[in-house]
Design a protein around this nucleic acid. Sequence first.
DNA 1: TATTCTTTACTGAACGATCGGTAAGTTAGC
DNA 2: GCTAACTTACCGATCGTTCAGTAAAGAATA
Lengths: 209, 209
Amino acid sequence: MSESNAPSRTAHKGGNGRAQRDAYDLPRVLEIAVTAFNEHGYDATSMGNLADRLGTSKSAIYYHVAGKEDLLRLALERAIGELEKVLDEPGAKSGSAAERLRFVLSGAVRVLVDDLPFVTLLLRVRGNSDIERSALERRRRFDHAISRLVDEARDEGSLRADVDAAVTTRLLFGMINSIVEWYKPGGSITREQLTEDVLTVAFDGLTKR
Amino acid sequence: MSESNAPSRTAHKGGNGRAQRDAYDLPRVLEIAVTAFNEHGYDATSMGNLADRLGTSKSAIYYHVAGKEDLLRLALERAIGELEKVLDEPGAKSGSAAERLRFVLSGAVRVLVDDLPFVTLLLRVRGNSDIERSALERRRRFDHAISRLVDEARDEGSLRADVDAAVTTRLLFGMINSIVEWYKPGGSITREQLTEDVLTVAFDGLTKR
DNA sequence: TATTCTTTACTGAACGATCGGTAAGTTAGC
DNA sequence: GCTAACTTACCGATCGTTCAGTAAAGAATA
């Protein structure tokens, strides 16, 4: 692969360096689209709007993607895909339920931070189309897997049993998912520090001991 | 356009006054609108859509409200107004910082539950228009007031100091605000039980002691 | 090397559908 | 008859999408 080229040109994909007047390849289009969707909402973002941000025309976008919904599909797939991977990692499968829960929650925070705009979009989806409903269904399954871990950790005696288990899980999710609303990567708080803080507050609470 | 509500024309049915072929008064229109906005998003909800839900025509809605944005304005005003009231109650002004914090958080949960659809809409606003930005600004001020309470409770020695104060506050908000995404009034969990669970998890964490 | 063909990556204009909103006429109850 | 509460018909703007055309560059042919 040739990497000595000017960055504004030839962002070629596979084996051959073809003609490319500008670098509007799919990853770039997707990145701009996800940013715009998060800023103004999916419905409020028009294809003309995206074209302006890309410095190109509306119809040029259609060379790279099938349509507006396709951009949403690709973005949601990326987000939910990365989250699902966490459940397949070894740390999510061995150890006590409490250990596995901590591992999965850490992994979720990691994905939230590393793919922040994509996960942000996923968490705002309300099920308006088949694509959104499909992403929502996969998210529901992911949530359910963590919910089972909470139940197990409870049965183990690791977690408190005086609060409804379902409520506990929901509040836990609420806390973690809210990260996308305020966390700025590259700021003063590192990803690792954030993960530690989240687990501390979640498991030990706000009260001083 | 005047800031105040109370349009002198709306003949409310309370004292039984004017002709009313159907019960499409402002509160009913607003209720249907907020429900629709929450289900499909503000942008994805058309005036025609609202008219169908009301069993009337699009233009009939314009007799009761100035336009689509006006519906949003009224809904957001109600939500943020109720939240702001909590800060003015006596319990929010006397006692230790920890006590005031618990009072305000309880109050926030109470408003969230009692005006669930309105607060849901408020929490989903992203600042796309002047109206949204104005609501967002008031919400930011409300959040900041609670943030100061957390700082005070910390200085008092009531709250832990080993986690960043700003992060603590954000996670606390994330947890509480997430309620609008899953709580169903009239279900098995009462408002009071929910409030208690939230405070327990927030202050004491998930771990069994 | 010179010419032609093919593919890539667009441009610009236009499409039908739908949007929020309005104008003007109509009906029900006092 | 007056007015509140509509209805029907329509407006211009904008939406996502399509389509014919085309410039640029590599590949094939001579």
